[in-house]
């Protein structure tokens, strides 16, 4: 793995000038992913914050070939490009080793893009799919997705007098992707550059489909203080809300174990979308969330021990 100094010297492929919000996780994620790939790379992007903010014609933040077609189909779009690569390489029309990366938000991954993602994973295209997961449809106005956590207030699961924010827990996309028997899947955060860079490196050196789920803070939708963006992702890890782990050929590995598991309130209290949960009367929801975080954490530990 390259050192931070070496990374800093690499040519940037996701460059400044984009219109992402200050304190947005997506820009940091895109930059780190692109820095980790020291090869010719074709990027696909689902419709979403990252795409609309980085490609406003006639400008582009992508100093590498880039394609966007629609919202629900980045995995299918890149499937086509990767298939063309295989056949053109066979014909000797291309001599480079090309890496394919698809970026999708959680809506474009967990919800509307799940079918095309599943298809591409099943077919085993050699690509890295990065879900920059800000846990709601932030680009279109903070609507809930199946990645939105229990209790979060969004514009379509607002905290009201009767309903206290989203009723369901988030979909377990990692298990779904791992169930495709893909050779590499990992979960990471932008707040630990070495973790994300390491995982991207592993993924692009994997012969087949790989998937990385990255927690992406959204200062508008969560909302949080912009300067807290990276820190907040580390707190997600410390509370075991967002464990850092990977699954290589079916073998789970925990990449970081907090010395002391922090209570979930440490994560909740930093974000406006959970503010109502910390008011009197909603203690039972916080308890439920803690219970589910614990359950998922224990389940993950078991998988790491037994797989």
């Amino acid at each position: 793995m390259p050192s931070i100094k070496e990374l800093a010297k690499r040519k940037e492929k996701f460059v400044s000038g984009h219109r992402l919000c200050p304190g947005c996780g997506a820009g940091v994620i895109a930059r780190l992913v692109m820095l980790a790939i020291d090869k010719p790379v074709v990027v696909g992007c689902a419709t979403g914050c990252l795409e609309v903010s980085s490609t406003i014609f006639p400008y582009s933040s992508w100093d590498t070939p880039f394609i966007h077609s629609a919202f629900e189909n980045v995995a299918a779009t890149i499937s086509g490009a990767e298939s063309a690569y295989k056949v053109l390489k066979k014909q000797g029309k291309i001599d480079k080793d090309i890496v394919f990366v698809a970026f999708g938000g959680d809506g474009g991954t967990y919800d509307i893009g799940l079918q095309s993602l599943s298809g591409a994973a099943e077919r085993g295209h050699r690509m890295l799919y990065v879900c920059y997961n800000n846990q709601a449809y932030m680009n279109t106005g903070i609507q809930r997705s199946s990645a939105t956590p229990r209790g979060a207030s969004t514009t379509t699961s607002p905290a009201g007098k009767v309903i206290p924010g989203k009723l369901q827990f988030s979909k377990d996309i990692m298990s779904i992707m791992i169930a495709h028997n893909i050779p590499y899947a990992a979960q990471t955060i932008p707040g630990r550059w070495n973790d994300i860079v390491n995982k991207v490196e592993k993924a692009i050196n994997t012969d087949g489909f790989s998937f990385i789920n990255v927690l992406s803070p959204c200062r508008l939708g969560w909302p949080h203080k912009p300067e807290m963006a990276m820190e907040i992702t580390r707190i997600a890890v410390e509370t075991c809300f967002w464990p850092l782990y990977e699954c290589e050929n079916g073998k789970y590995k925990l990449n970081y174990k907090p010395k002391e598991k922090k209570p979930i309130t440490e994560w909740l209290k930093l974000q406006g979308r959970f503010a109502h949960l910390l008011k009197p009367g909603n203690e039972h929801i916080v308890e439920e969330i803690q219970k589910e975080v614990d359950r998922r954490w224990e389940e993950l530990l078991k998988k790491c021990e037994t797989s």
Binding site: S83, S116, R123
Partner: peptide
């Protein structure tokens, strides 16, 4: 290279990705 996609929507999406490469 035959891509047996999982829907017609993905068929056209994959065609778009492929045609974009030339």
């Amino acid at each position: 290279e035959y891509v047996a996609v999982e829907s017609e929507h993905s068929a056209m999406s994959a065609c778009i990705g492929s045609a974009a490469t030339g």
